[in-house]
């Protein structure tokens, strides 16, 4: 597949491989958009950008949750899982949005609404879903799990 040119307010004009583009049949909740590219600007960093292919101004930092929350689980309503074609035996790629701040200790992640990437018939399809597992927030401190482990009060 030929590379795709994406215009970005943040990064200028960039070329990305077509297979780095995720289709979002439902868009991102409240933001819409149907196609986003996963941009990794530093392979050493846990953070990537989910960049709209359609809107140069629209990009969200994302990370994979398990590096920071090893016990993270996603619980979906049965009909939701069925609608997305997911089952427990079929581990999907999962990202969560990051709210970046001046200091890394003030970063938060949205564990309540992860982005689940499925392998669709026409390439990867991604859905932002509501995670019904208990105790999750849309703005969870990035280091909440490690802080809890250090103090010996593991989060439920």
């Amino acid at each position: 597949m030929s590379p795709l040119t994406v215009h970005s307010t943040r990064f200028g004009t960039i070329e990305i491989e077509a297979d780095a583009v995720l289709s979002f049949p439902r868009g991102l909740i409240g933001l819409g958009g149907s196609r986003y590219a996963l941009l990794t600007t530093d392979p050493e960093s846990p953070f990537s950008w989910l960049h709209s292919v359609e809107d140069p101004d629209l990009a969200l930092p994302v990370t994979r949750p398990w590096q920071f929350f090893p016990g993270y689980e996603i619980v979906l309503a049965d009909d939701e899982a069925a609608a997305l074609g997911l089952s427990g035996d079929d581990p999907a790629d999962v990202w969560v949005t990051v709210r970046a701040a001046e200091s890394i200790k003030d970063f938060t992640v949205n564990l309540r609404a992860p982005i689940v990437v499925t392998s669709g018939p026409d390439g990867p399809a991604a859905y932002q879903v509501i995670n019904d597992a208990p105790g999750l927030k849309v703005a969870m401190p990035l280091f909440a799990a490690s802080a809890a482990a250090d103090s010996g009060t593991a989060a439920a």
Binding site: I29, L31, L60, T97, R99, A100, I130, V138
Partner: peptide
């Protein structure tokens, strides 16, 4: 979630 997406963006 809508508000959090906007803040992340």
């Amino acid at each position: 979630v809508k508000e959090e997406n906007a803040r992340a963006a």
